[in-house]
């Protein structure tokens, strides 16, 4: 029996974020996922994880004070960034309290979640490997999955990258609604809101699942070109001006892999 292109490259599963990288910056995907040159998560990702941790402390224990949740978020941030030399580290740390406070004010109204960081898996037609992911929170009482995003500015709608992620989470949960809570560190001068929540429609889900399938099929076709990751890397050119390459470690690894 013929192995799928994913099998031949040792890829047992995909994820929405992995496919988002492939769609946006194929060179980065090749470097990290095929050649194993992963770069440490950046300061923005660390702050997201830290805020999520603090908010989860407050959601899972409604009696925990906001200050205890903020402490938890700061400890997590320090742990995540222990080896980071990013000059924005202290500036981001100072804003954690605002994100946690704002997100908890909104999300505690949803009650106590009955699922957190649970692994989900979905299959897409004709794609040989599953898509896996981890939900933020499930509120089964309300039939909702909620994902928290930390931001400096509210987006005007759920973007494609988040939408694809949400489509995977929601499709793994039958008819659950999928909401994204976008949290800012402080209210704006003209807009007093610190959090805005958007819900995906059924049309959004179908559109994003169709896009994920198309992207996964494109990746499969690309991987079928060669079993040699180096040869595949030679077919793609990175765009180092893109924010995907904003981490200095990623750009250094990219220069090493792509030769310029």
């Amino acid at each position: 029996m013929n192995a799928s292109p994913f099998d031949r490259h040792g890829i047992e599963h995909l994820s929405a974020s992995s496919l988002n990288v492939w769609a946006a910056q194929p060179a980065l995907w090749i470097m990290e996922r095929l050649l194993g040159r992963r770069t440490p998560a950046g300061i923005t990702a660390a702050r997201g994880k830290a805020v999520e941790h603090g908010v989860h402390l407050g959601l899972s224990n409604p009696r925990l004070s906001i200050e205890e949740c903020i402490d938890g978020a700061e400890r997590e941030f320090i742990r995540q960034t222990a080896l980071s030399a990013d000059p924005r580290r202290e500036e981001e740390r100072k804003k954690l309290a605002g994100w946690v406070r704002g997100a908890l004010a909104e999300l505690r109204q949803y009650g106590t979640p009955d699922g957190y960081q649970e692994k989900i898996e979905v299959r897409l037609d004709d794609v040989a490997v599953p898509l896996v992911g981890y939900i933020d929170w499930r509120f089964s009482d309300h039939g909702l999955i909620v994902d928290l995003k930390t931001t400096e500015r509210f987006p005007s709608q759920i973007g494609d990258a988040h939408g694809r992620q949400g489509a995977v989470y929601a499709s793994a949960h039958g008819y659950f609604g999928m909401r994204f809570a976008y949290a800012k560190p402080a209210p704006g001068k003209t807009d007093p809101r610190q959090v805005t929540v958007y819900e995906m429609s059924g049309d959004d889900l179908r559109r994003h699942l169709a896009a994920l399938r198309a992207i996964a099929l494109s990746l499969g076709r690309f991987l079928a070109v060669s079993n040699d990751p180096r040869e595949l890397a030679g077919l793609i050119v990175p765009d180092f001006d893109s924010f995907w390459w904003s981490e200095p470690a990623a750009r250094a690894a990219g220069r090493d892999v792509f030769g310029f």
Partner: peptide, 16 residues
Amino acid sequence: PAASKPAQHVAPPPAK
């Protein structure tokens, strides 16, 4: 297309 429509904030669900 959804991408060009600003989304609206959805309020938390009513408490059970």
